[in-house]
């Protein structure tokens, strides 16, 4: 039992890490990864939503009629997203301003709906929480990696600290939207190379 739960948790970290293996949740990874701080904030907000929506969906999995399940999942996910939004507004206001519209947009994040549909609706609550937590942490790390690459190359800083010294000429392209695509593609490529061995 404990082993299978650990397995559900682990798979989100590498085997099925959302943006690179499942290739889901790409909108935020392109939009909010201009800095590590934004990326981690977004990742943690998403993690909270995944964990609690998975928990609730799993608890109600035998009650929700299958014909209205998507509507029910959306209600559950939207509720937790709004909770996150209000809490962030109350306690981390500057971060909330930076992430802006992308916090409410977690509602339509494919990972949240995908995990509810593909996993939590068929599994008991504990395994679903482990799945949500694993996916969330995997997602946070992915966002942070892309964020770190883009922030360090595009701005020469990491978490606000200069990393390459004063002579470094920032590669501004990395901070633009096309740079995000290129960066995402490169990380995906490296992950596939490692996975092949």
């Amino acid at each position: 039992m404990a082993q299978s739960i650990l397995k559900e948790f682990n798979k989100g970290l590498w085997e099925q890490v959302p943006p690179f293996r499942l290739v889901l949740g790409l909108c935020p990874i392109l939009a909010v990864t201009k800095s590590v701080e934004n990326a981690v904030g977004m990742g943690l907000a998403s993690t909270f939503v995944f964990v609690f929506s998975n928990l609730l969906v799993a608890m109600l999995r035998n009650i929700i009629p299958s014909k209205v399940r998507i509507a029910a999942y959306i209600i559950i996910i939207a509720t937790f997203v709004t909770v996150v939004e209000l809490v962030m507004q109350a306690y981390t206001y500057p971060l909330f301003l930076k992430l802006g519209i992308f916090i409410p947009l977690i509602v339509v994040n494919c990972i949240a709906l995908g995990r509810a549909e593909a996993f939590a609706s068929k599994n008991p609550p504990l395994a679903s929480v482990a799945d949500g937590l694993g996916m969330g942490i995997g997602y946070t790390i992915s966002l942070a990696v892309v964020g770190a690459l883009r922030e360090s190359l595009g701005n020469g800083t990491l978490l606000g600290h200069t990393v390459f010294g004063p002579d470094f000429l920032p590669f501004r392209f990395m901070l633009e939207a096309p740079g995000a695509f290129v960066c995402l593609g490169l990380v995906l490529c490296v992950m596939n190379l490692i996975g092949k061995k």
Binding site: I63, I75, I76, T79, L86
Partner: peptide, 28 residues
Amino acid sequence: VLTVLSAFSGGLLASVRTGTKDKIEQQV
């Protein structure tokens, strides 16, 4: 099911909103 779920969601959001309202006003 949908009605109960929506009502529950509404109740939860209303209480979170009341709980964070003053804090949000301060932050703004």
